[in-house]
Amino acid sequence: MIEEQKSIGVTPAELVEKVQVLFNDGWRLVQIGCTRLENGLELNYSFDKHYQFFNLKVAVALSNPEVPSISPVYWSAFIYENETQDLFGIKFPGLVLDYKGSFYKTSVKNPFNSCSEQINIKDIKKDLAL
């Protein structure tokens, strides 16, 4: 095992508070990632301090994909949140720099939210008038 990796689960409501505590303690934001599970989405926020690794996991329901943005606390979070917004369709109210869906210009909206078989190539070609 290379290193110990701890993770704890958080609700969207208590996320910004917990992140503020980590910021004041000197933790560095490493990445924000999203995974599609069978019944929803799961966001993971990774932090690092002196080579110790720590994760916060937030479960997001598909019916209401909204999580408060942490970019007022960590300014560099805006690129990760814009990427997640474009690929998965989660909304982040409070984003400091919002590209409103045009960060990655994909021909299919929220491509990572559905599995590959559901994306129909014929529909894409029709949209692009090929």
């Binding site: 045009s102 960060f103 990655y104 210009k105 994909t106 491509p111």
Partner: peptide, 12 residues
Amino acid sequence: PSVGFIHRGLEK
């Protein structure tokens, strides 16, 4: 900044 010109979707 604006990126996304060579997004290939390799993670998928």
